[in-house]
Amino acid sequence: MNNFQYSRASDVADAIRLLAADPNAKLIAGGTNLIDLMKENVERPSRLIDISRLPLRDIEETADGGLRIGALVPNSDLAYHPLIEQRYPLLASAILAGASAQLRNMASVGGNLMQRTRCAYFYDTTTPCNKRSPGTGCSALDGLNRNHAILGTSSSCIATNPSDMSVALAALGALVHIAGSAGERTLALTDFHRLPDDKPHADTNLGSGEIITAIELPPRGFARNYSYLKIRDRLSYAFALVSVAAALELEGNAIIEARLALGGVAHKPWRSLEAEAALRGQAATPDHFGRAADLLLQGATARSHNGFKIELARRAVVRTLMQATSATPQSQAHKKIA
């Protein structure tokens, strides 16, 4: 770990000022990922700006019937919040599928969006990695890539985003509220994370000197027909090989509205409006789900070890949509897959 300066931001404006003053500064809230990366010398911030005491811990209803969630709400508080449990159980389920109770207690909502890939080469500073050290090359392309991306990859990076929460947020159409020296702006969650292209060192479209202040959920919560299914190498405490967030609005067996997002397959939560459109107006049947899965997975390409993910994702999408249809969402406590 490197030596660093520590400052505590007094308010959001102060955090932005401190960030602007030092291009190598990093914000710290729960620190569940950043501290690990600092211990491994992957992140070497010159300064940590502690925002954990800023007043960004409220969950409040918005005028249009949605929810605004402060960026510092701990993951566990969010997952167990009555409004989330009742109106956005897909989000609660995705959060509880991730990490451990201890980590969820520490991790903030904003920090969850900022967590970095678990690619082993990114973590090992002796190996080439374009994300960690731009221009050095990608070791995963022809190396150990069983856990790596099958969608939206580039020749410079095939890392995945490890978040579960973000996958549900993408499906729900969440917005990210951002503040910076130039003022405030809002991004769709699906535009917040980016694909690697030739700049894999940038995980998100957050500008330098910008800070996440809140997540906003639109009114539609899909509380009846939803499921979050996470497939991993052991039944808990592992990152997703593939995860699926599925949400449906049904009239009888007809699909009025569908949402579908994949985790563990790309540099960002993977959502396809085309796949969702193909479901709208159709009957909720495995055949239609399979076709939507194919659309969602269009363009998927495998490297040497991750080819299984394409078929696994396809099957997982169908299963998750079946769970959503029958209103029997995947339990995160009992690991048997219904």
Binding site: R118, A120, Y121, L144, R234, L235, S236, Y237
Partner: peptide, 20 residues
């Protein structure tokens, strides 16, 4: 290619957890 262990930690070197 590097002659290196790439999962030298107990997050990535999997042993069973209670759920297993």
């Amino acid at each position: 290619r590097f002659g290196r262990i790439m999962n030298a930690n107990i997050a990535e070197y999997h042993i069973p957890v209670n759920a297993d």
